[in-house]
C-alpha cells in the first residue's frame, strides 16, 4: 500500500512510468486464475504422487510404511523394464509413422493447395479429434478385425488380407490416427513460414527439386519436425486406450501398468506412483527438449 500511494501522490509523472498500482495488480489478475488452477490440479497432485512413490507398497486403506526407494528399485526388474521398452517402441514407432504420413500432407496444404482452401483442409484434418478416443479405438477394431472393413476392401482389389488387430501394427495405426492432426498442424505452421525465395534462388542456381527439398525445405522446417515429433511422442507414450483395446494379449505398456497398480487387483498405489513419476520424468525431458529446439523456430523470421 505504501509503495503505491506515496509516490503517486508526490510525483504524478513518475507514477505513470513505474509505480502505478495497476502494474502490481496486473500480473496477479492475469496469472492468478490459471496459476491457482495449475497449483491445485497439477503441482499439488504431482507432489502427492511423488510422496506416495517414496512409500514402498503403499495401499489405500492400509497403514503407510516408512519412506524408502523400494518402489523405484522394483522398476528395474526385467519384466517392468520390458514394459518400459515396449512403451518407448510404440511411442517412437507412432512418431515416425506420423512424420511419414504428416509431412507430405502438411507440405501440400502449406505450399501447393489453393490458398482459400487451406483453412478448410486443416479443419478437416482436425475433425477426428472431435470424437472420443474410445469410440475411435472401437471403430478401428471393426475396421482391422480379420473379417472387417480393411480386409473386405483388400479382397476387392485381390490383395491378401492382413491380420493386424491385437498386434503391434494395430497400435501404430490407432496411435498415428489419433495424433496425426497434431503433427500436421505443427508442420503446417512451420512450412507456411518457409522462405520461398530461397527455393527460387536454388532453382535459379541449378538445384534439382530433390536437392532443394533436402538442403532447404527440410533444414528450415527441422524445428517444426522436432516440435511435432516430440508432441506426438509425449502423447503416445502416455496413451492408454489404444494399446488396451487394439494391442492384444502382449501389449502391456507403462500406462496400462499404472492403471493396474491403482485400479487392478493389487492396488499397490506406491509402485503405481513410482511408475507415474518415471512417466512424468520422461515427458518432462521431452518437453525440455521441445522448449530448447522450439525456441529457434519462433526466432526465425
Amino acid at each position: 500500500m505504501s509503495l503505491t500511494t506515496t509516490p503517486s501522490g508526490a510525483e504524478p509523472t513518475r507514477a505513470r512510468s513505474g509505480w502505478h498500482p495497476a502494474k502490481l495488480i496486473q500480473p496477479f489478475v492475469l496469472l492468478a486464475p490459471a496459476g491457482i488452477w495449475l497449483l491445485l490440479l497439477l503441482v499439488f497432485p504431482t507432489l502427492l504422487i511423488l510422496e506416495l512413490s517414496l512409500i514402498p507398497g503403499f495401499r489405500l486403506g492400509q497403514p503407510a510404511g516408512a519412506y524408502g526407494l523400494g518402489n523405484y528399485l522394483e522398476i528395474f526388474q526385467p519384466v517392468y523394464f520390458q514394459v518400459v521398452l515396449r512403451s518407448l517402441f510404440f511411442a517412437v514407432g507412432s512418431t515416425l509413422l506420423c512424420l511419414l504420413l504428416g509431412f507430405p500432407v502438411a507440405y501440400w496444404i502449406a505450399i501447393k493447395a489453393p490458398r482459400r482452401w487451406r483453412n478448410l483442409l486443416l479443419v478437416s484434418f482436425i475433425l477426428p479429434l472431435w470424437t472420443s478416443s474410445l469410440l475411435r479405438a472401437y471403430a478401428w477394431i471393426t475396421i482391422l478385425r480379420p473379417s472387417g472393413l480393411l480386409n473386405s476392401l483388400l479382397g476387392v482389389f485381390g490383395l491378401p488380407g492382413q491380420d493386424w488387430l491385437n498386434r503391434s501394427p494395430a497400435v501404430f495405426i490407432g496411435m498415428a490416427y489419433s495424433f496425426l492432426p497434431y503433427m500436421v498442424l505443427i508442420l503446417y505452421a512451420s512450412l507456411e513460414r518457409l522462405d520461398r525465395r530461397l527455393l527460387e534462388a536454388a532453382a535459379d542456381l541449378g538445384a534439382t527439386p530433390q536437392q532443394s527439398f533436402w538442403k532447404i525445405t527440410v533444414p528450415q522446417t527441422l524445428p517444426g519436425i522436432a516440435a511435432g515429433g516430440l508432441l506426438v511422442f509425449i502423447a503416445s507414450l502416455g496413451d492408454f486406450v489404444v494399446p488396451e483395446l487394439l494391442g492384444g494379449a502382449s501389449s502391456m505398456t507403462v500406462s496400462r501398468l499404472i492403471y493396474n497398480q491403482f485400479l487392478g487387483a493389487t492396488r499397490n498405489w506406491g509402485f503405481g506412483s513410482s511408475l507415474s513419476m518415471i512417466l512424468i520424468l520422461a515427458v518432462s525431458i521431452a518437453i525440455a527438449l521441445l522448449l530448447k529446439y522450439g525456441d529457434r523456430s519462433s526466432a526465425q523470421p
Partner: peptide, 9 residues
C-alpha cells in the same frame, strides 16, 4: 500381478 504383467508383456 507380477506374473500377469509378465504374461501380458
Amino acid at each position: 500381478d507380477r506374473y500377469w504383467t509378465q504374461l501380458t508383456s
